[in-house]
């Protein structure tokens, strides 16, 4: 597909010898917002980590195509430089590294150039303002001592600063109040462009009322067992995952990802 940004083909992945993803297929065209839903432990974060290239996760079969190129074996920093981004479900603390200097290093790495300090500062202040945050926040050490909500906001700040082509948001809405959820959806709206796509992993439908997805995929036991339009999310709200589980077909015949 000409306009395809991400294509996942028959992806199998394991961590610590345990097989988690078992033949996952997915296609995300440019400019679209796709939601990934699924019960706890279904492999959503694993998918996010594998897409970003976490070294602890081993891809045992299948491949990931990003902008038509096979990125399955690329290191995470290379994937980031090519336009992938992951907003972490559980961002780690990096003591002694200021959020601001980290952002500047990240921006420099992704853009391959050093932005003048003043220009960078102006950008940062603008993004912080839109998130309702003070510059003092960026002076704090990266995620160190941040509340759950602050950590999520920090991920959103990074998303807004880096403007990736494919942003994977791993439960960025969890642990946020309704205002926080609005911030996330606003950030998606603000960074949305015809060539950029979003993979929004979520548990909750709440965010999907602010952020209407083009497609919804249901992940179950490491496979996409059902895909549909925004209405699938509402259907799930009524019937729950259990109803889908019973119709779960074996991986070999699953054609998830293609409408």
């Amino acid at each position: 597909m000409e306009n395809e940004l991400l294509r996942i083909e028959d992806l199998h992945a394991s961590v610590e010898g345990k097989s988690i993803l078992r033949g996952l297929n997915l296609s995300v065209p440019r400019g679209e917002v796709h939601a990934i839903m699924g019960p706890n432990g279904s492999g959503k974060s694993t998918l996010a980590n594998v897409l970003m290239g976490h070294p602890s996760y081993e891809v045992t079969r299948g491949r990931i195509l990003f902008k038509g190129e096979d990125v399955t074996a690329l290191p995470p920093d290379e994937r980031a430089r090519r336009g992938l981004f992951l907003a972490f479900q559980y961002p780690v603390e990096v003591p002694g590294v200021s959020t601001m200097s980290f952002l500047r290093a990240a921006l420099g790495a992704v853009r391959g150039e050093d932005q003048p300090v003043r220009e960078f500062r102006r950008r940062l202040e603008g993004e912080l303002k839109d998130l309702g945050m003070e510059l003092a926040f960026a002076r704090r050490n990266l995620n160190e001592g941040f509340s759950g909500g602050e950590k999520k906001r920090c991920e959103v700040l990074q998303l807004r600063m880096l403007r990736p082509e494919l942003a994977i948001l791993d439960e960025t809405d969890s642990g946020l109040d309704i205002d926080g959820i609005r911030l996330v959806s606003q950030a998606v709206a603000a960074t949305r462009r015809p060539e950029a796509s979003f993979l929004v992993i979520t548990h909750y439908l709440r965010i999907l009322t602010h952020l209407v997805p083009d497609r919804v995929h249901v992940l179950f036991a490491g496979q996409v067992i059902r895909s549909g339009g925004a209405e699938l999310a509402r259907e799930l709200e009524v019937s729950g995952y259990e109803a889908l589980r019973s119709e779960h077909r074996p991986a070999a015949t699953a054609q998830a990802g293609t409408p």
Binding site: D77, A80, R81, F85, G96, A109
Partner: peptide, 26 residues
Amino acid sequence: DQLFYLRSRGIPEAEAAAMIVRGFIE
């Protein structure tokens, strides 16, 4: 996980490690 976090933002491995060390002694 720390290394992965920094690398997921485009920062190469050696630089990410140096960043963590610098932060540690900050």
